[in-house]
Design a binder for these strands. Sequence first.
DNA 1: AGGTAACAGTGTAGTACCATCAGCATATGG
DNA 2: CCATATGCTGATGGTACTACACTGTTACCT
Lengths: 157, 157
Amino acid sequence: MVHEPTVLDRLLEISELFQKDMARGNDDSGLTPARVRLLWELAHSGPMSQHELATRMEVSRRNITGLVDALEASGHVARSPHPNDRRSTIVSLAASAQRMMRGMQQEHADLTADLLGAVDPVDRPALERGIDAIAGRLRELIAADEARRAEREGRRA
Amino acid sequence: MVHEPTVLDRLLEISELFQKDMARGNDDSGLTPARVRLLWELAHSGPMSQHELATRMEVSRRNITGLVDALEASGHVARSPHPNDRRSTIVSLAASAQRMMRGMQQEHADLTADLLGAVDPVDRPALERGIDAIAGRLRELIAADEARRAEREGRRA
DNA sequence: AGGTAACAGTGTAGTACCATCAGCATATGG
DNA sequence: CCATATGCTGATGGTACTACACTGTTACCT
């Protein structure tokens, strides 16, 4: 029942540790994972409509409404009308939240530097190539699986 | 606001993809993440008391009761009396669940092989060393942070 | 123009899950 | 015998998500 841990196991472990770390950050800020994810999306790609948020996060529009409601109430985001399309509302980060996200990105950058510092410089290029390769392959597999899944759904309907 | 993705970002991406994959597996088996985690703990470390499960999973005993209740109802685990301590009940995997977990481990092994196959063989040793180093460093950081946190808790109390 | 279809956001209602707290029963272990 | 650990009950709260129905807006298209 006991395996010697493979590279993938290590990766999974790192995943878990990251999650743990993220969860802690959430606790500190009083935000929930889903809300942080939304904020992160905004920080990364700038203001956008709720519809676009729903698409990117792959959840229902209704769900976005709730998340934005909460984040608006806590002052993290603001709703503003779309200049051209009066149906749409644009969600943007409040100044304070922008600062917060900047801080998180800074922390993230620091962590990156720290962790990378633990790797023998000689190994870094290969490490980078290897991780890229794995990420790429994983993306492929997921895409293929999703396609298969979608097709099966189609057949059934 | 746009960064070029670093190795760490790639790692985070891999984390997310893994999670997505796991979530899908959960859907298939009709199990929730927490329940799967419990099963995994049992598969990995063998039968144990609820108390021990609570300790390992870092959740309340009450929570374990609920999870075990559900898993027992669905036939994934069985409760049996502890041989020495008659207060305690031992939770163990049912045969079917054991098979299921074996299957999951097999899938995991296959995935590992597949993903590793995408990496240039020349890069693998360095990749392995690099990942080990990162995982190790991350563990250190988390441990240090937890210690700091615990101390602060102590001070307040 | 007028009608119609598609789209944005939202209200209502409902589901599933995780987790906690305080307290209770038991019987074990000292 | 009593303190304690173990597991369980009941009550509560909260997040995340969905489906359906509705309003207003835009775009298309005869």
